[in-house]
Design a protein around this nucleic acid. Structure first.
Lengths: 199, 199
DNA sequence: GCCGGATGTTAGCGCCGCTTAGATCGCAGA
DNA sequence: TCTGCGATCTAAGCGGCGCTAACATCCGGC
C-alpha cells in the first residue's frame, strides 16, 4: 500500500489543489513552496519542476478560481431565458462568489494575476454579449440611448464594487452571508436601473 | 557633517517615508525590513524598535494613504457649495486617487489593513453625511423615496468599483490617465442618477 | 533492451522576519 | 553637575523562505 515511490505521479495537481484550498482558507501569504512540498511528501525542490516560481502557482490558482466564476456565471445565465433576468442572475452569482470566497475573488483581480492572463479574453467575450444585450434593449425602446459601452461598464463597476466591498470586509457590508449578499445585489442593481433621481 | 551617530534621531519617520514611497512605486512585496534598515543606515534589528512587525508598518502606510484620501475628499468637498456637485467632486477625487496611486489604494482596502483600523470610524462619519444629504434631497422631492442607506451604498459601490477596476488595471479600463478617469467617473455617476432604464 | 527526457533528490546560497543580549545615548531629578 | 534609567541602537544568530545546480530514478518510444 502506501509504499514510497520515487515519482509522485500527480504532483502538479496535488500541489495545485492543496495550494488552492489553503489560499481560499488562509490567504496567499499562508502558502510556501516548501510547506506545500512537505504536505505532498516530496522534497522542497520538487514543486519547481511544475511551477517555475511561486507567482506562476498563484497565477494558476487565480486561473482556476476565475474559471469557476465563469462557470457559475454561465450556469445561471442558461437557467433563465429573459435577458434582464439573466443579467440580474449573473450579478447575484458574481457577488455571491465574492462573499463565499473572498480571498480567491481578490486573487483573481489582483494586479499580478491580471497582467497578461486569461481575464482579457474571457472577460471580453462576456462584455460583447452584455453590450449586444443593451443595444437590443435600446432598439426595443427599453433602454435610453446612452453609449452602450458606458452602460455596460457602469453596470459592471457597480457589481464589481459591491463584490469587492464584501470580499474585503469593508466596514459598510461586513459579515454578509451569501443570502444577504444576494438581496443587496438585487436591490442595488434595481436602483441602477431606475436611477436614484438626483440630477 | 555626515558623522555617524549612534542614534538615528528620526528613524520611525525615515522608515515610514521610504517604505511609503517604495510601496507606492513597486508594491508591498518590494519592501523588506532589512532593506529599509540598510537604506536608513541602521542595523537590521533597529526597525523593530518602531514597528513590532512588518504588518504594523504596512498598516501605518495604509493609514497614511487613507488619511491622504480623506484629505482630498474634504478638500474638494469644501470647494463647491452645491450638495450634488460636492458629491460628484468627491467621486471624481476618489477615482483619481485610485488611478494615480493604484498600489496604495489597494493597500488601504486590503483585508489586513481594514481589520480593526481607522477605516471604520472615518468612513462611517462620511457615510452619515452622505445619508443626511440623500434624506435632504428626498425631502426636497429630488430623490425618490428608496431606502437612503441603500442609495448611499449603491453610489459608493459604483464609485468603489470603478476605482478598483482602474487601480487593478482591469482590462476594461486599462491605462486610463487621471483625466480620463475623471470623465469616466462623471459619466458613470450621471448614469446612476438618471438610471439605465432596464426594468 | 536501452536511452533520453521528465520528474524526483540532496545540498546549499542568500535573503528574509524576528529575537535576545548587550552597548550607547540623552534627559530628568538628586 | 553628576547619575541613573529608559529609549534607542548594534551584533549575532535562529529557523524559514525562494530558488538553483548537480545528480538519481523512472518511464515510454525507438
Amino acid at each position: 500500500m502506501g509504499e514510497k515511490r520515487y515519482h509522485h505521479g500527480n504532483l502538479r495537481e496535488a500541489l495545485l489543489e492543496a495550494a488552492f484550498r489553503l489560499v481560499d482558507e488562509e490567504g496567499p501569504e499562508a502558502i510556501s513552496m516548501r510547506a506545500l512540498a512537505r504536505e505532498a511528501g516530496v522534497s522542497s525542490a520538487a514543486p519547481f519542476r511544475h511551477f517555475p516560481d511561486k507567482q506562476v502557482l498563484l497565477d494558476a490558482i487565480a486561473a482556476k478560481a476565475g474559471a469557476e466564476i465563469d462557470r457559475r456565471l454561465d450556469e445561471v445565465a442558461v437557467e433563465c431565458g429573459d435577458a434582464l433576468t439573466q443579467f440580474r442572475a449573473m450579478t447575484v452569482a458574481y457577488v455571491r462568489y465574492a462573499a463565499e470566497h473572498p480571498v480567491l475573488f481578490g486573487l483573481v483581480h489582483s494586479r499580478s494575476a491580471i497582467s497578461g492572463r486569461f481575464l482579457g479574453q474571457v472577460d471580453d467575450e462576456r462584455r460583447l454579449k452584455l453590450i449586444a444585450l443593451i443595444i437590443e434593449g435600446q432598439n426595443a425602446g427599453l433602454i435610453p440611448d446612452a453609449d452602450p459601452e458606458l452602460i455596460a461598464l457602469t453596470s459592471e463597476a457597480l457589481t464589481h464594487g459591491l463584490a469587492r466591498m464584501i470580499a474585503d470586509r469593508h466596514p459598510r457590508v461586513r459579515n454578509l452571508d451569501s443570502e444577504e449578499a444576494r438581496k443587496l445585489a438585487l436591490a442595488a442593481t434595481q436602483l441602477l436601473q431606475t436611477g436614484i433621481g438626483l440630477a
